[in-house]
Design a protein around this nucleic acid. Structure first.
Length: 653
RNA sequence: GGGCCCGUAGCUCAGCCAGGACAGAGCGCUGGCCUCCUAAGCCAGUGGUCGGGGGUUCAAAUCCCCCCGGGCCCGCCA
């Protein structure tokens, strides 16, 4: 039975790799051969090729001799019609008839799974992503994190791994204490009329700003008494800004603002917030515990709603406080105390991680350069309380333990690189070498908005919800224009898919290492390299099959037509390499490879579609079946990539 | 001061790790294409000292060194 797995093994990369290994054994690196195989820029020179001269030279064989042997072996492969050597290159010419037959058979057999080649040894993988602070709605940066994390999880699942996604709820920081303080002052009564995380964001921003104003006033009073005029004037300007900000916040929700503002008068918010933090950490006060949990739950409810629009669902939600309360942190600290890496840093318990860098495996796996300096990591403050990173180490172990994981991916911004390195090195120092080496920091750069500084504390941000709404709105206008006859409900559904898909695609198709300046105009540009383009192409393909409205007659396909049309030839080749690209994309955790290849497929399909080589108008029954099979395989391939992006393919749009 | 990442067409990016066959897309701009399977489409044209300078190599956008510009990190914050 022909499957995608076979197509993968017949991909040019695998063909060359196998043949080279067969001939040269371990004198070459199979992966290197795979990587060097490329498309031939001029079709008269062949389809795919490799620069064979470099190998001949390195291994010390005559070029002619090596070329001849390799060419002979390649020719024996069923998809290879011929070989050609030009200027140090050894190229293959594909047997397109045979290739069509194999690809179509695989597509027919694998149906929904075409191209999604499964690993032989599936792993258990945890992907932690998003993990936004639960004090305000998600913004575009969280959107990048969530989209990358979700796509990574789906990609690994499609590859056959068992994947669990987790979200770490940071409920122990000062931020949450500030929120809880305001939440209590506001009477713990969330309105039903507003999305809960947006309301929480308001409470947080109002409280934070008011607390800052109180603090600043106290400072000013002190400066005034001490007669430090210059500093006084500076701080006064700061206060003006804060007050202006407070007024803006009041405008959005006067009732809420006044309630918190009145309640906060004549109190000592700073001390009360500190008390909340401490009582929560030591699990002392039921009202405080309940309030924090309530407020955070409200925010998470909003998160889930937003994420769900993007097709994202988190499997497990972990509370940082549960870790702190569980005793696992103490257990870890026992280990630290008896560790040889233990040190005291001005009286605080710490781990000295520097010497671990002598280990080459550690350096390579964690991506650290020889000379890099890693500062000691403090785990316990002088007052005996633990730090965020301490709990993060415990959390990483928990992820491994609870899912029995082989690997843990942490989708976390690049700015946390050092912290993530310290977590992993600490694990190794404490005897968890396997866990330390198999924790992967899947890092991405920030998303900025042009000309805007966002601030959660001040309530200045553009939420992911607003961006999605804008995109959906835009899509709705188009749908309305194109398909006025559809039911309103259906139009809404289509617009929702297009809008959310556009945002997600924009965030995932760029390499995670590029800092993005998010441009709404561009994200709303639904042409060419965009999710709507892929969706549109899928709808076109689906439409052809829907109009034909019969099963494809695979046995009647006339394969000799394979070489007749340049667009079809190109498309076939791209469908043929799809399984290989999928595998590479999954195994290297680079979703953008798959996305770009899929875009190329869509592009070629549209070129063919708009050429005069129509499918349904084809008179020759055998040729018609060939074209239908090509449409079918394209549609399935597009659908599969969309599935990996968590986007539902549309039948019409 | 030290470290990490980014710098490729007017704009947004792919290619760099694994050096080689003319440096590729999209947007923009110019001009075309709907009696024919959805024009969110297609075709043609326009546009590049690959940040700069050295080096290694038969061959450098790709590897090494220096410099410049941008982002981020170097907390008993989270």
């Amino acid at each position: 039975m022909t499957s995608s797995k076979k197509i993968y093994e017949l991909s040019p990369q695998r063909l060359y790799a196998r043949v080279f290994t067969r001939i040269l054994g371990d004198k070459i690196d199979e992966k290197e051969v795979e990587y060097l195989v490329g498309e031939v820029p001029r079709s008269d020179l062949g389809d795919y090729g490799i620069q064979i001269a470099r190998f001949a030279k390195r291994i010390g064989v005559e070029l002619e001799e090596l070329s001849e042997t390799v060419a002979r072996e390649l020719s024996r492969e069923e998809v290879v019609a011929d070989t050609r050597t030009i200027g140090g290159f050894l190229n293959i010419i594909l047997d397109l008839e045979k290739l069509s037959e194999l690809v179509f058979t695989a597509a027919r057999n694998d149906r929904e799974e075409y191209g999604l080649v499964r690993v032989e040894k599936p792993e258990k993988i945890v992907v932690e992503h998003t993990s936004a602070n639960p004090v305000h709605p998600l913004h575009i940066g969280h959107g990048r994190n969530a989209s990358l994390g979700d796509t990574l999880a789906r990609l690994l699942r499609a590859r056959g791994h068992s994947v669990q996604t987790r979200f770490y709820i940071n409920d122990m920081g000062r931020q949450v204490a500030v929120l809880a303080y305001g939440y209590i002052l506001a009477g713990r009564k969330p309105p039903r009329s507003i999305k809960p995380d947006h309301w929480i964001g308001q409470v947080y921003a109002i409280t934070h700003t008011l607390v800052d104003i109180e603090n600043l006033k106290k400072e000013l009073e002190k400066l005034r008494l001490e007669g430090r005029d210059e500093e006084y004037r500076e701080k006064l300007a700061e206060l003006d800004n804060l007050v202006a900000n407070a007024l803006e916040l009041r405008e959005k929700d006067p009732e809420l603002f006044d309630k918190i503002a009145n309640a906060i008068k004549n109190r000592d918010p700073e001390r009360e917030i500190a008390t909340i933090m401490k009582k929560y950490e030591y699990r002392e006060d039921k009202e405080i515990i309940d309030s924090i949990r309530e407020a955070v739950e409200l925010c998470l409810e909003g998160f889930k709603e937003t994420l769900s629009r993007l097709g994202i669902e988190i499997d497990v939600w972990d509370w940082e406080s549960d870790l702190a309360w569980s005793g696992e942190v103490e257990e870890l600290l026992h280990r630290v105390k008896s560790s040889t890496y233990r040190s005291l840093h001005k009286g605080a318990l710490a781990l000295n991680l520097q010497q671990l860098l002598d280990d080459k495996e550690i350096r390579e796996k964690l991506g650290i350069r020889q000379g890099e300096e890693i500062p000691p990591l403090i785990l316990v403050r002088s007052d005996g309380t633990t730090l965020y990173t301490t709990r993060d180490i415990v959390y990483t172990l928990k992820k491994f333990r609870e899912y029995n994981a082989d690997k843990v991916y942490n989708v976390i911004a690049a700015e946390q690189r050092l912290e993530q390195l310290q977590v992993r090195l600490s694990l190794i120092a404490l005897g968890y070498r396997r866990e330390g080496l198999n924790t992967i920091h899947y890092l991405y750069e920030m998303v900025n908005l042009p000309g805007q500084k966002m601030s959660g504390r001040r309530g200045k941000y553009i939420s992911l919800d607003e961006l999605i709404d804008r995109a959906v709105e835009q899509a709705k206008i188009e749908v309305e224009k194109r398909n006025p006859e559809l039911l309103q409900e259906e139009k809404n559904k289509i617009a929702e898919t297009i809008g959310t898909a556009a945002i997600k695609y924009t965030l995932v198709s760029v390499s995670p290492l590029k800092p993005i300046t998010f441009n709404l105009e561009e994200a709303l540009d639904f042409t060419k390299n965009s999710a709507p383009y892929i969706l549109y192409t899928h709808a076109r393909a689906a439409n052809i099959l829907a109009k034909y409205n019969q099963p494809i007659e695979w046995e009647k396909i006339e394969y000799t037509t394979a070489t007749e049309n340049p667009h079809r030839k190109k498309l076939l080749k791209q469908l043929y390499t799809y399984p290989y690209i999928f595998v590479k994309s999954a195994d290297e955790q680079k979703p953008e490879l798959l996305i770009n290849h899929t875009y190329n497929i869509a592009d070629t399909f549209n070129q063919w579609y708009t050429s005069r080589d129509h499918v349904l108008g084809e008179k020759d029954p055998g040729k018609k079946q060939y074209k239908l099979a090509l449409v079918y395989t394209t549609k399935q391939t597009l659908a599969n990539t969309l599935k990996i992006l968590g986007i539902k393919p549309l039948q019409k749009m």
